[in-house]
Each structure stands twice: as C-alpha cells, then as structure tokens.
C-alpha cells in the first residue's frame, strides 16, 4: 500500500497549539499542501499575525515573520517589494485583518500587492478569550457583546470579501469554509488559485476562510462545524468574488 495522504512537507512536526476541533489546523494544512504542490516552500516567506495563529511560525516549514496586530499586509508589502520573486503570504484572523488592520488590508488590496492573504473568519477574538470581532454575527453573544451583538450600536458584521471586491486592485477574492469535507476540498482549490495568481504575478489574492472556534463559541467541535453551516454561511455566502479570467 502507498501513502495517499500525509503531513505536507511545508508543515513542521510541531503539534498545533490550537484547541481541539479548531479549524486553524485545517487551514494551515491546506496552505502547506499548496506550497508543496507548487514546489515553492523554499522560496516562500509567510507573515503571521497576532492572535491564536501568532505561533504559525512554528508550524509552517518556511521562513516566517511575525507582524504587529493588523500590520501583516504592510510587512508583506515590504518583503514582496524587496523580493519580488519570493512567494509571500499573510495569515490573519478577523480581529487582525478586519478591525485593527483594516487600513493595511484595504490598501494592500488596492495597490494590487502581489501577495496572498489567508483570512480566517471565525466571528470572534480567540486568543484574548472570546470578544466581539468585526465579523461577529448580529445577536451573537461574546465577552464584549454579552447581550448579543446589537448592530445599532456595535455595527454590522463586515463582509470582507465583498468589501474588498469593490477594489480594482484586487485580482482574486473568494470565501470558503472548512466545516465539512466537500467544503474543505473546495477551499483547497481556492487557496491554490490564490497562490497561482501570485505565481503568475497577477496581483492581490485573498481567501476568506469561515472557521470554527469551538472554545469561545461554547460549542463542541462537531456542533461548531454545524454552526458554521447554519449561521455563518447564510450571512457570509461562499464563492468567488473576483476572479481573473485565466484562472476562472
């Protein structure tokens, strides 16, 4: 018998520090598989954020830089501009990308920076213990929206992919989910397209990944994956929002 599925080379052997059932691990693996498949691990520089995936540098088996909260797209810009032949990606959560780093992501997309952004949307701040994120759903209870998010005073959940799709500089933008095998397979394809765009020097690519946070949602991992299906996907529809003709 032959091994048909195993750990990608672009992941280290270090066990993930994520909670049981957290989708970060799946997202890491998909990115690593894509780096393997393109054979670019040794030419890749990743930028990890502040948040649960602050330790991503331990897990990705490539050069990594850790950014200040929200600043990964700016750091990736500096890296890519000085090393245009390197493959550069950022890995950011929703607090990082859609709150404190809103300016950085909007302008990196608008400049059409030739980088790939992996955006984990789990509708909550994980590492700080479950506070409201810009993507927290209306009515969702968090540490800082204890009576449910009231859009009238706390704002509406931001649909990042749709928002960034209005920018002409963005080349590839999609939203995927990791709540079931079929969606994971689609997510992988989408991540691959995003890196293909970068390899082809076609500009900015971003994959928004709807993910679960069982711990801070107060659900079991299985229930959390269901919650993604029942609550997140209806508000955050899956699909491609910007696609260059060549990879459509």
């Amino acid at each position: 018998m032959k091994k048909v599925f195993g750990r990608p080379v672009s992941l280290t052997d270090v066990p993930f520090t994520y909670c049981p059932g957290c989708h970060h691990g799946i997202a890491h693996r998909l990115v690593a598989e894509v780096l393997d498949e393109f054979g670019v691990r040794e030419n890749t520089i990743g930028v990890c954020p502040v948040g649960c995936s602050v330790f991503a540098y331990l897990f990705f088996n490539c050069d990594m830089v850790c950014a200040a909260h929200g600043r990964a797209p700016a750091i990736a810009t500096g890296i890519k501009r000085s090393r245009p032949d390197s493959i550069v990606f950022t890995y950011q959560g929703d607090g990082d990308l859609a709150s404190i780093g809103t300016a950085e992501i909007v302008h990196a997309a608008n400049r059409g920076e030739n980088i790939t952004v992996i955006f984990i949307n789990n509708a909550i701040y994980g590492m700080t213990g479950g506070q409201m994120a810009p993507t927290t759903l209306a009515g969702q209870i968090t540490q800082t929206s204890p009576y449910g998010r009231d859009p009238k005073t706390m704002g509406y959940p931001i649909r990042v992919s749709e928002m960034l799709s209005t920018l002409k500089g963005a080349t590839y933008i999609s939203r995927v989910a990791l709540n079931k095998p079929a969606n994971i397979i689609k997510a992988k394809k989408s991540i691959k397209k995003a890196f293909q765009v970068q390899l082809d020097r076609k500009g900015f690519s971003l994959v928004e990944i709807l993910s679960s946070c069982p711990t801070n949602w107060g659900l079991s991992p299985v229930e959390a994956s269901k919650w993604v299906e029942e609550n997140m996907i209806p508000y955050y529809p899956l699909g491609e929002f910007r696609v260059p003709e060549e990879v459509a």
Partner: peptide, 23 residues
C-alpha cells in the same frame, strides 16, 4: 521601491518587511 503608504503605521511596517530581507 517607493510607496506612499496609507499611514505612518503602514509605512514603518513596510520598512520592517523590507529590512527583514536585508535591504
């Protein structure tokens, strides 16, 4: 590269990224 950044915060982080590559 010259970039008029979106903010001073972004500008110094672009410096961070570029300096990390040795330039």
């Amino acid at each position: 590269a010259f970039i008029q950044a979106e903010s001073e915060i972004a500008a110094i982080n672009m410096v961070y990224g570029a300096a990390a590559t040795g330039v």
